[in-house]
Design a protein around this nucleic acid. Structure first.
Length: 376
DNA sequence: AAGACGTGGTT
DNA sequence: TAACCAAGTCT
C-alpha cells in the first residue's frame, strides 16, 4: 500500500504503538518545548496549567502560571483562598468563569475526594470547568491513562495528517479525528503523545504556512500528499460581532469612587467595575448614564466632565465605552442590579479584580490624580 | 446545537 | 483594518 500511495500505512497493529507514534515521540524527546508545567506529574499543577491554557496562548499563560503556583502552591491553598483573591490572580487572563470553576472544583476535591484529584476522565469531567479536553489531558499527563486529547492543535494536526474533509469543529469531524488519534495512541505514552502533537501544532504544523519540510510526520501526512494541507482543517466562518456603546460613571465622594461587582455568572462575572450600561436607541450618552445609574443604584447623579473613550473587542461583540466623572445628587446608592458595591480610595483600586476596560479607567484616574497632586 | 464567554497577537 | 485565532466549557 505504501508503495502505491507514497505514504506509509496509517493503521498500527492492534495494541501496539504505530510507527507514526514512535516517530512523533522521538521528535518530541528532541524538540519539545521547555515549559514551567512540564517536568512534573503533580495532578494539581497539570490541572492548573490546562485550565489556564484553554483558548489562551502559552506565552500569555507562563507568567500567570508562575505567580499562581507561588500564591496557591497546592490544592489546599487554593481551596482555602478567598474568591476575590483567586479572581485577582486571574485578572487579565480572560474567561473568568475558569477561575471561579477551578476554585469551586478545588474546594469540592478537598471536601468530597479527600483532596485526591480523580484519575479517570469520567470523574474528572464531573469537576466544574473540566470538559472532555481537560479531562483527557490531566488523565494522560498526570495519571498515565491512555486517553486522546482533542484541542485546537490536535484538531488541526490530525485534520491534516488524516486529511479529514468534514468541518473539523463539527461533532462528526471531531469524532473522526478522535478515532484516528485513538488508533495511533501509544499505550502508556498518551501524555507524551498528546503533548507532542500540541508542540507539533505550535511549532511545525501551524495554522498558516505549515513547515512541512521540518515535520517528522511528513511521510504519513495524507493532506500534504494531496497538496491540500493549507485547506485543512475545514473551518466555518463566524458572523461579524455587533458594535455596542456603553457609558460608565466615576462617582466621587469624599476622595473615594464607587465600584459595583458584576453578577457571578455571565460576562466578567464576579469582577468589579465602574457602574453604567448599554446605550439604547434614541438615547444620548448622558441620558443613558443617568438611567443606568438610576436602575442599578437607585440614585440620581450629576454628570460632569468626560474622562475618556475606551474601545474593546470581546469575543462576540465590540464595545465603545464613554466614561464620565460624576457626583451624587439624590439618594444613597444601593446595589440593586449588582452583587455588591464598594467605595474605594484610589490606592485601593488595584486590589479589586477588574476586566480590561475598567482597569484602564482605574489607571487613568491614578494618572490624573498624580498629575494634579504630585506629592501624593 | 449554537452562541456566550476575554484578551492579545498576527496578518 | 477587520478577521482570525490560541492547550475549551457551559448552557
Amino acid at each position: 500500500m505504501s508503495a502505491i500511495t507514497g505514504t506509509k500505512s496509517s493503521k498500527p497493529a492492534a495494541g501496539s504503538s504505530s510507527e507514526l507514534a514512535e516517530r512523533l515521540l522521538i521528535w518530541y524527546r528532541n524538540y519539545r518545548r521547555v515549559l514551567p508545567w512540564r517536568g512534573t506529574n503533580d495532578p494539581y499543577a497539570v490541572w492548573v496549567s490546562e485550565i489556564m491554557l484553554q483558548q489562551t496562548r502559552v506565552e500569555t499563560v507562563i507568567p500567570y502560571y508562575r505567580r499562581w503556583m507561588e500564591q496557591f502552591p497546592t490544592l489546599q491553598h487554593l481551596a482555602q483562598a478567598e474568591e476575590q483573591q483567586v479572581l485577582k490572580a486571574w485578572e487579565g487572563l480572560g474567561y473568568y468563569s475558569r477561575a471561579r470553576s477551578l476554585h469551586r472544583a478545588a474546594r469540592l476535591v478537598v471536601e468530597k475526594y479527600q483532596g485526591q484529584i480523580p484519575a479517570s476522565t469520567k470523574e474528572l469531567m464531573r469537576l466544574p470547568g473540566v470538559g472532555r479536553y481537560t479531562a483527557a489531558a490531566v488523565a494522560s499527563i498526570a495519571f498515565g491513562q491512555d486517553e486522546p486529547a482533542l484541542d485546537g492543535n490536535l484538531r488541526r494536526v490530525a485534520a491534516r495528517l488524516f486529511n479529514v474533509s468534514l468541518p473539523a469543529r463539527s461533532p462528526e469531524g471531531e469524532a473522526q479525528i478522535l478515532a484516528h488519534l485513538r488508533a495511533h495512541l501509544p499505550p502508556g505514552q498518551a501524555g507524551n503523545f498528546n503533548q507532542a502533537l500540541m508542540d507539533l501544532g505550535a511549532m511545525i504544523c501551524t495554522p498558516r504556512k505549515p513547515a512541512c519540510g521540518d515535520c517528522p510526520l511528513a511521510e504519513w501526512c495524507q493532506s500534504r500528499r494531496l497538496g491540500v494541507q493549507e485547506e485543512r482543517p475545514v473551518l466555518t466562518r463566524r458572523a461579524a460581532p455587533p458594535l455596542i456603546t456603553v457609558t460608565a460613571a466615576v462617582i466621587w465622594r469624599d476622595g473615594k469612587v464607587l465600584l459595583t461587582r458584576r453578577p457571578a455568572n455571565g460576562l466578567l462575572g464576579g469582577l468589579w467595575e465602574f457602574p453604567g450600561g448599554k446605550q439604547e436607541d434614541g438615547e444620548t450618552l448622558v441620558e443613558c448614564l443617568r438611567r443606568e445609574i438610576r436602575e442599578e443604584l437607585g440614585v440620581e447623579i450629576e454628570i460632569g466632565e468626560p474622562l475618556g473613550v475606551y474601545r474593546h473587542a470581546y469575543t462576540h461583540f465590540k464595545v465603545t465605552l464613554h466614561a464620565f466623572i460624576s457626583r451624587l445628587r439624590h439618594g444613597e446608592p444601593q446595589p440593586h442590579q449588582a452583587d455588591d458595591m464598594a467605595w474605594a480610595a484610589l490606592e485601593e483600586l488595584s486590589r479589586f479584580p477588574m476586566g480590561k476596560i475598567d482597569r484602564q479607567i482605574a489607571a487613568d484616574l491614578l494618572k490624573i490624580s498624580r498629575s494634579l497632586f504630585p506629592a501624593g
